[in-house]
Nucleic acid binder design. Sequence first.
DNA 1: TTAACACTTAAAGTCCACTTTAAGGCAAGC
DNA 2: GCTTGCCTTAAAGTGGACTTTAAGTGTTAA
Lengths: 137, 137
Amino acid sequence: MEKRYKIGEFGKLVGLTTPTLRYYESEGLIVSQRDDNGNRYYTDQDVKWLGFLLHLKGTGMSLNDIKRYVQLRAQGDGTIPQRRDLLERVREDSLVEIREREANLKVLNHKIDWYAGKLDKTIDENEDFETYLKRFQ
Amino acid sequence: MEKRYKIGEFGKLVGLTTPTLRYYESEGLIVSQRDDNGNRYYTDQDVKWLGFLLHLKGTGMSLNDIKRYVQLRAQGDGTIPQRRDLLERVREDSLVEIREREANLKVLNHKIDWYAGKLDKTIDENEDFETYLKRFQ
DNA sequence: TTAACACTTAAAGTCCACTTTAAGGCAAGC
DNA sequence: GCTTGCCTTAAAGTGGACTTTAAGTGTTAA
């Protein structure tokens, strides 16, 4: 038979709190079934979906876009092109963000190096960071 | 003489709205001087600082941590080690985040490929995404 | 049998980073 | 002189993603 996970157990499995899971359900990101006591339960299918959802979320995709994705999925295989397009847009945004972060991180690294140079006096006392930065442009 | 920028001009220069600049000032992230009419003005020094602030922010550093940095800077060169430590922590966090994003993006890319395979029938109809993903592990 | 613990709902609260609103002051140009 | 457009302040509102609170029901273990 299929394994049924109660919300607490499921939460531990996927790394979310029970209020968060109920919140996700209220937002239409996940669904649950009910047992004879009216309590939610989840199956391995739900574990898989939530796993993927967290990957989507981890790329920076908003809950709102994830919801749109869920709605398309519910409409069957005919919406595969739209889902692919949606994910391609998310990929582009995510790539842009990663590249921006990397660029900003580069400047931060130079600042850390600049502090090191100031501390061990390998950078002239009078050279300010902006001048120092220009060396790398 | 040094150029004085009024808040609107300064905002355009650095790409922030005037309410945001006032908000940053109220949060202790930037300072401004006042002219004879009591209006704020900024100098090229402020342009430089805001430029660097935006790089810090762009790494994911919170306004609160930027404020701590500002406070350390105000205490003079003696706090250079603390500032460097703070920035090193920010760098570490930022690197971790970038790597996580990249990992999640990888899964997203596989999903897009999987959709392509479904659409052009190079992936078997019955193979689900989780099984497909295992090919790359 | 009673305490502990899991579950239920709806609604309000939180945090961050702004943005918007409201009400007004001052200077330049027509 | 009046309109336009900049500036001022304080306070309230917004959006996203939860988290917390309140009030209650049901199951399990000692």
